[in-house]
């Protein structure tokens, strides 16, 4: 069964002050989502800046353009008990879960104050029940196991996957395992139609939306970039997984606006323009009256985090 919500719609503008905390959990939904999205956006733009200034090493994969997925899905979870498995493009998921801006920046800067003490870096994060790893598809069976381990406590596990990761066999073994063992896993597919430099059309056959159904797994699908609509659909999916102790497949059509990593975008200008046209931030600005105040707040959170991360000791052996 496939359900979907049409992208929409008219909201009255909300005037609320920026949150007292990075996640703004006390704020009304739309404002809270806007704040979380901006926090992710500004943090990742800053990371790209730091890289180009030569202040960061290694690699990074920003979720610029995909913030609505992170915010919509993670806010549908119970942060106290649910489990998140993320991939290489994990900053947005991580921030929406934890609000730990400084912990993430310090981690990427290789500082002892990073969430993994400088061991993991950009794509190997752990914070409470949030985990990410840099091997495509490898986390999916692990997500199934964690869901089974905690299902008696009513917990659900979420596994974020990209369209390109549909190539990995482990994904299909996990679908079967989750269905056979009744694991409450929400597989979240972020389909940005590209894997690194390879367009989906070159390497993904058939339908991604329809992939899970033959395993007896219920599907939820959405094409749009509205965090509130994603949140509502994700809440339905998570609620189903929790109530029925069953896996489900949450397909989200999205757009990667930034490069895969840094300066490695080989897409034609027209395709990039199409991606930018689906930027989730501008429509949110039309719904949040005092977005400038929120932007300023988020910028100050990022600024302070970069400053204190830079002042922290390097992780050394």
């Amino acid at each position: 069964m496939t359900s979907s919500i049409a992208p929409n719609s008219t909201f009255s503008q909300l005037e609320v002050h920026a949150g007292a905390t990075p996640l703004g959990l006390e704020l009304p939904t739309v404002v809270r989502f806007y704040q979380q999205m901006m926090l992710i956006r500004l943090l990742e733009e800053r990371l790209l800046d730091l890289f180009s200034q030569g202040l960061l090493f290694g690699t990074t994969h920003t979720s610029i353009g995909q913030e609505a997925n992170a915010v919509g899905v993670v806010n549908a979870l119970d942060r106290d008990r649910d489990i998140v498995w993320s991939n290489h493009r994990c900053h947005g998921h991580f921030i929406a879960y934890s609000g730990e801006v400084e912990g993430l920046i310090a981690e990427i800067m290789g500082r002892i104050t990073g969430v993994c003490g400088g061991r993991g870096g950009s794509q190997h994060l752990c914070f409470r029940n949030f985990h990410s790893n840099g091997i495509q598809g490898g986390t999916t069976p692990v997500a199934v196991g964690t869901a089974l381990a905690r299902k008696e406590e009513g917990a659900v596990a979420v596994a974020f996957l990209g369209d390109g990761t549909m190539g990995e066999g482990a994904v299909y073994e996990s679908l079967n395992l989750a269905s056979v063992f009744g694991a409450p896993v929400v597989f979240v597919i972020e389909d940005n139609e590209i894997a690194q430099t390879t367009p989906k059309a070159l390497t993904v056959s058939g339908s991604i939306v329809a992939r899970a159904e033959p395993f007896g797994i219920r599907t939820f699908a959405y094409d749009g970039n509205d965090p509130v609509e994603i949140f509502e659909l994700a809440r339905e999916a998570v609620g189903y997984a929790r109530a029925e102790s069953r896996p489900c497949w949450l397909y989200l059509r999205t757009e990667r606006i930034g490069p895969h990593s840094k300066g490695d975008d080989t897409r034609p200008a027209l395709r990039l323009e199409q991606a930018r046209a689906r930027d989730p931030i501008p429509p949110m600005r039309r719904r949040v009256a005092n977005f400038e105040a929120i932007d300023a707040f988020c910028r100050s959170v990022v600024d302070r985090a970069v400053e204190s991360a830079a002042a922290a000791p390097l992780a050394r052996g």
């Binding site: 290694g58 990427i108 290789g110 500082r111 400088g118 061991r119 950009s122 190997h124 992780a315 050394r316």
Partner: peptide, 8 residues
């Protein structure tokens, strides 16, 4: 495992 920190 190999740490992410360059210095490390």
């Amino acid at each position: 495992p190999i740490p992410s920190s360059r210095e490390w």
